[in-house]
Amino acid sequence: MKYNEQAKVLENREFASGYRYLTVEAPKQAAEMQPGQFVHIRVPTLEQSALRRPFSVFDAADGKVTVLYKSVGRGTTALSKVQVGETVEIQGPLGRGFPAKCDGVALLVGGGFGVAPLHFLAKRLPKSILFVGGRTKDDLLALDRFEALGVETKVATNDGSAGYKGFVVGPLDETINELRAKGEKFELFTCGPDGLLKAVTERALALKVPGWISVDRHMICGMGACFACIQKTVRGNSRCCIEGPVFKAEELVW
């Protein structure tokens, strides 16, 4: 069931430069939300005709929904000005999320705000390892929140300011090789820029392991009604908001 709730803002806190946690009271959606699903938020300070903005769910529990967002344009900048106690209209749970179980170790691969749905997922999959990459150590988000869940984290930065120097697929491939050497099973889960999604898709297909890829496309309705949010798949032009955002690696056509 999908809902449109008038949700009271409980938190809208900057935790790193340009990045915030927005937590709202949305009990119906919180109760049914699955990892990888998203919400469509109406930014109250934008003009009446402004479209909603889609955000993956970082956490949903106890009647509350949290998103982790980056201020990139006029909508997210306006959202950053919303005060605790004010109301935002939020539609969800939307889309098809990640499966809530995993055969073996869950390798979670995130880039930028793509770590958001992986955090919610990690709560359900205790045997997970998070791989996250960025240009510098300042781009590595919410590591403390993953560590608090007991998730092992492996980081890569292009400038070497933290962890592995280079791209995140470096440490990912190392771990994959170790697991394969030990004969351990694993699955891949990813969300982030298209380049990263492609790299993870390729690995899932080559290794014949399940790969779950969360795709980000510009959206209008978020409900499957307008056909704006297209990703090419083996079925043709698929709507990310309803057939995704999480696709199986073998469904995607890049």
Binding site: E47, S49, H218, C226, F227
Partner: peptide, 20 residues
């Protein structure tokens, strides 16, 4: 019918331009 290539819309002041 497959429809058009992405991008299929753009938000503009007071409205929306679509080419679904």
């Amino acid at each position: 019918w497959p429809g058009n290539a992405m991008m299929r819309h753009a938000e503009v002041p007071g409205g929306l331009v679509n080419a679904i």
